[in-house]
Amino acid sequence: MSPSFRGNRTEDPLDARSTPRVGADFSVEIFSSEFAGSLPGRTRDLSIGGTCIATASPFNVKSVNRIAISLPGQEALVLQVSGCWQREESSAELMLTGLSFDYMTESDLDAIWNFVLDSGKYLARFLSEHSEIHELGLEDAVGLSQMTRYRDIPARHTLYRQGTSKPGEDSIYMLLEGSVILQVRARDAVDVEIARLEPGQFFGGFPVLADVPHVDTAETATDVRLLEIDRHAFEYIRIAKPWLGYRLGSAMLRISAQRLSTLFERVRDRL
């Protein structure tokens, strides 16, 4: 695998993914050589190596030189950064941008490390004790929590449709807040609800796990917050932590099979 260039550093993509990261939602100000003042945004994830931020509009990712990020209980951290990538998140009409940290003081590094570790422990405990994949155990839950990103979606939005596998709509999701409806299309073109999900439940991911289209349609019933494991994160897990990738895939297939079994029983009872 050839190295990729990030900012002023040459870094292997697997090394970049190996840096622990957690879902994070904080206000951030973005500073660029191409505009006066700052552009507001929100973080989606945070690691000691960089962050993913969401903004309402695109900007020249290579022009970004620093950000000010507000962590809870302390003054804003002003960090030198380099832009890495940018893509549209159509589900929320936002732009996502990846930034790498070029330089941090020891106190800044300590603050981010403490946040990542504390948040990782919280998410790992939630995954281990209150989610559908509690069988993973605490150690695997810790590893999984460090591969996640927050995603906020408004009510009555379709996350993905049955029979599709579009990039950006193929992630594995866990519901943190709100409610999601899963549906399948019947022969007479009627959408049949097969599940109404609550926090702690997983869904999606078939295009990533098995390279097949989604077997259902997912629509938000309310405003929701999701914990997302996207294709790139899962590919890293599969290469660097194959046992975790296998167990996560097995758990997701079990969950989907149970839901489809419930649907088949409902259909059988109507015959």
Rank of each mutant, 00 (worst) to 15 (best):
L138H: 08
R149W: 06
R151E: 15
N114G: 06
E139M: 14
E139T: 14
D110Q: 11
Q146C: 09
Q162S: 04
T148N: 06
I181M: 12
T148R: 05
E132M: 08
F203D: 00
E193K: 05
V116L: 08
V142C: 05
F126H: 13
L138G: 01
S119W: 01
L136Y: 08
S119I: 05
V142T: 04
M147C: 13
E139G: 08
S165K: 10
A111M: 06
E139L: 15
V190P: 02
S179N: 07
R151P: 02
G200K: 07
V116S: 04
S119Y: 05
G200Q: 06
S128N: 14
Y160V: 05
L138I: 13
S145I: 07
R149H: 10
I181W: 05
L136F: 11
Q146I: 02
T164S: 08
R156T: 10
I153E: 06
K121C: 04
R151L: 15
W113S: 13
L197K: 01
G120A: 07
L117Q: 15
E129Y: 07
Q162H: 06
D191A: 08
G200R: 07
E193M: 10
F202V: 01
K166M: 05
I112S: 02
F202E: 00
G163S: 12
E135N: 11
I172M: 15
L117C: 14
G163E: 10
L176V: 07
F203I: 00
G168K: 01
A189L: 12
I133M: 14
Y160F: 15
M174G: 02
H157F: 10
A195M: 02
S165H: 11
R196I: 06
R196H: 10
H134E: 15
S131G: 05
V180F: 00
E129S: 13
H134P: 03
E132L: 04
L182T: 04
A195Q: 04
G143K: 11
F126C: 10
L117R: 15
D188F: 03
E198G: 07
R125M: 09
R125H: 11
K166R: 09
Y173V: 11
T164G: 00
G163Q: 11
E139W: 09
T148W: 05
A124D: 01
E139D: 15
I133D: 02
I153V: 15
R161M: 15
